[in-house]
Computed example of a mutant assay.
Amino acid sequence: MPNENLLKQIEFIKEIDKIKYIQRRTKLLNSDRNENDAEHSWHLAMMALVLSEYADEKVDLLKVIKMVLIHDIVEIDAGDTFIYDQNKNHENTEEELKSAKRVFGILPEKQASEFIELWTEFEEGTSKEARFAKSMDRLEPLLQNTSNNGGTWREFDVKYPTVYEKKKVIKKGSAELWNYAEKLLDASVEKGILKK
């Protein structure tokens, strides 16, 4: 008979398969198919691996990867809130914390505590790892929308000031990536795929 911790870990692994069914508003690069949360998290982990040299401060890369892999697991219960939603705040919500406690609580106590702490740290964005992880989280949809002729910006009539405000979080983790992002935003305005 497997030990109790293993059974809890397997149960958690089965539970998080649900993240593959959480559809995001953004579409894959150069595609008309919506991305799911699992694809998004994997892409952020790869971005962190590839782009970590641009973090403003030396970061614990494993910690960043853990953060980006688990940050949206709470959406299994809470659902995905569109970053440009006008009716519901995209920031940390009571529903997300409740979900974090339930889903991560499936794990053995030590792992559950670690994952909840990592998720909370990411949401608060105060550590250097969380700031860089959030940079990845805001850069990826920017790359997607610029590759899709404006993507969700056009679809939901999101204007430049709103996009700029949401994307400037990138600057807190990487000045160099923010410089790149600003140029993409300016080019998007020039191309007419993002309205001023």
Rank of each mutant, 00 (worst) to 15 (best):
K134H: 03
A112M: 04
I76M: 04
D157S: 10
N92M: 11
E117H: 10
M46S: 02
E11S: 12
L139I: 01
S174Q: 01
Y84K: 04
K195M: 03
V189G: 06
K58E: 11
K196R: 04
A187D: 14
N34S: 06
K63Q: 09
A100T: 09
N89T: 02
V64Y: 11
V64T: 13
N89K: 07
N92L: 12
N36L: 02
G151N: 11
T146G: 02
F12Q: 04
T162D: 14
R154N: 04
K98Q: 11
M46K: 06
V74H: 06
K128M: 03
E95V: 15
Q111A: 13
L6Q: 02
N179H: 06
Q23C: 00
F132D: 03
I65R: 13
V64S: 14
L118S: 07
A187Y: 09
N3S: 08
N3D: 12
Q86D: 08
K88L: 08
I22E: 07
S188R: 01
Q86R: 14
A175D: 03
T93A: 05
K191V: 04
K58N: 12
A78S: 14
F12W: 08
E95F: 15
F12R: 06
L69G: 02
V74W: 10
A175K: 09
Q144R: 15
E114M: 13
D56G: 13
